[in-house]
Design a protein around this nucleic acid. Sequence first.
RNA 1: GGGCGGUUAGCUCAGCGGUAGAGCACUGCAUUCACAUUGCAGGGGUCACAGGUUCAAAUCCUGUACCGCCCACCA
Length: 750
Amino acid sequence: MEKPEKVGGAYDPKTTEEKIYGLWLKSGYFNPDKLPPKIYPKKAKRYTVILPPPNITGSLHMGHALNATIEDILVRYHRMRGYKAAWLPGTDHAGIAAQNVVEKELRKQNISRFDLGREKFVGEIWKWREKYGGVILDQLKKLGASCDWSRARFTMDEKYAREVQAAFVHYHRKGLIYRGERVVNWCPRCRTSLSDLEIEYREEKGKLWRLKYPLKDGGEIIVATTRPETMLGDAAVAVNPKDARYKNVIGKTAVLPIQNREIPVIADAAIDADFGTGAVKVTPAHDLLDAEIASRHSLPFHQIIDERGRMQNAGVCDGLKPPECREIVLKKLGDLNLIESAEDYVHNVSLCYRCGSRLEPILSKQWFSKMGGLAKTAIGAVKSGKTKIYPKNFEKPYLDWLGNVKDWCVSRQIWWGQRLPVWFCAQNQTEISNDHPPAGGPISKQNENSTAEKFAVSVKKPRQCPFCKNCDMEQSADVLDTWFSSALWPFAGLSPADVRKFYPSDVLVTARDIINLWVARMIFSGREFMDKEPFKKVLIHGTILTKEGKRMSKSLGTGIDPLSLIDSYGADAVRFGIIWQATGNQDIRWDEAAVIAGKKFANKLWNASRFVAANQTASPQKVEKKSDGFRPRGATAADKKILKELTRVKKTAEKNIGALEFGKALRDIYDFFWHSFCDRYIEESKKQMEDPAKRESAAATLSFVLNESLKMLHPFMPFITEEIYGTAAAAPPEAGPAGNERRMLMIEKW
RNA sequence: GGGCGGUUAGCUCAGCGGUAGAGCACUGCAUUCACAUUGCAGGGGUCACAGGUUCAAAUCCUGUACCGCCCACCA
């Protein structure tokens, strides 16, 4: 089939996007300090958004694209409304994630981090970061993000890191950070503690064993467990005090099989009489609930699993992994005829959120942040309405979590991150170093916390050891939780002048999975250090899923790469497609058809503007200002109608953007532009053009409506609108056909 | 165990008290007139199910079913 030669041709995003982004960068307008003072006077209001700092390990995925598109819409819209708009970007050092990535790289050469040693290994991560850490920000540029790149921060920048350490010192001085030996969630692969929020659960088919523990005075008590191997660390058997079945067993002594250790039978209200046999083996060092029970009853903590997740000090199967040990224990118990039964049982196992390894609760010395008071301020911020969460449903999980939150383990035993500003007396070392691979020996003594520990807390190394007066103090080997660091993101690392300009920000846009992990912690940190909530609004957007409703995952190959979409359809079309689907706050089942619709729409815009350009009259157009907008002299009914509709759609767009309803806003503008303007008005204008008396008003109306439409669409589709605006097609009538004194659309008055 | 969403055209979703909408897909017609990445016309839905409130319900209330997500120390 032969196609007729076309004069103008279709819009090609590739040839324009790079050029336009270059123009924006050259203008400097992404930096609010460089906006033209004529348009943005000193007293102009500010509008600030902070970019949730992507991990340096990441590459742009659909979630980032959605997040960034929303933020860019808000920033561009407010910039056009006359606000000194700022969007502050940066990246997160992503402690465990980044360390794991580099460890994996090294493993290919058969090198472990311990082979390199701490300093060299951290050097490797820095090298990696130099090479790849900025990739994701460059990818955001492809999307059209109007971030103030001159203010890009990194959470491991010297200034930022120092402020993170200072925050630790501040909390410690206030008594809000303390050191304690507790049972914590431990990842044996990453060899670090994790906070309660850094755990993922997976259902696993296992068995529930009923084991017989003989009583010293004869008889037996049957306990139910999913992990028989942990019986080697048992310190008691517990029952509910109200459980009639065990009334006369409480206080008696059981004899732990295999080790033949005597353990008490105790009563604790935490035991559910309806589960299993109603009697539970208590393993204080390897179960969070058991640890609580143990501390209530002063039971000993037998640490039988080490930092590598291997059995130790158990007398049986030392050095083996727990599942291997389980077989041995079961065999021995079977031989002793102490297994009552074993039934199939589905239960949740806890996994490391970074590497997916099975976690082992172990007893460990860690640093904890007291959450009580801080949680209260974070609750108050939302309850008082000082920080508003959109949509409102997300307030409940936020408040519920804060209402029951336990102290936050903020120390990590990895190497990549801000070192704890804690200095130990070298003569009285109590810190267990994590700088060497654990030998498998005892990692900490039981109930050691009574010893007075000799450490000083300060950002700088103390000149003189306050304890022995003459040692070279050693800094704690631990680093801070990445989320402790990112909790300070709204202000840390900014110059004092910038803090005044940009704190607090207007809106935080993020995904729901980090409401507690990040948002709540930013809110109380903001209150603690800046005495003010860090943002007025929190917008929780949906998650982009596959068309089948499954999570997008790189490893499963279900992910969609926004960059390849941009390559195929253009950034404007991708932004359009994302926002088209982002109505309400529902999760999005990704449909590429929406991006195709965006590409078609871009083409429509392009061609409509060519038509408008071709129909401009030589002389400047006369327009009258009416209360409801502009109206050309001698306007026809059709002219008036489209102008009236334009006024309406503009107001609706303002309302929708204000309400953070971007999908609605876009659909409405789309419908107006395509159907009202192109299908109806442009067709009508063709007739008007033939009548000399109606020609001028048609030309003026075409130009005016196109011009206004470009402005409305610019936050959504910045590249093509900027490109068209730079041509004569969209010259505002009052500016004359050649478009004198044109500004860039990005700073044009909305 | 608790909480939060969802269930509307073949697909992805809007609508959230007044006689069903969009994009894509589908059917028919129309190409020297900005655009075939088009225009015009059209087909297609007992709005998950069952009760209730109302003059009126996809829309409000109650319950059920299925799907999804989050939280939780049932060992």
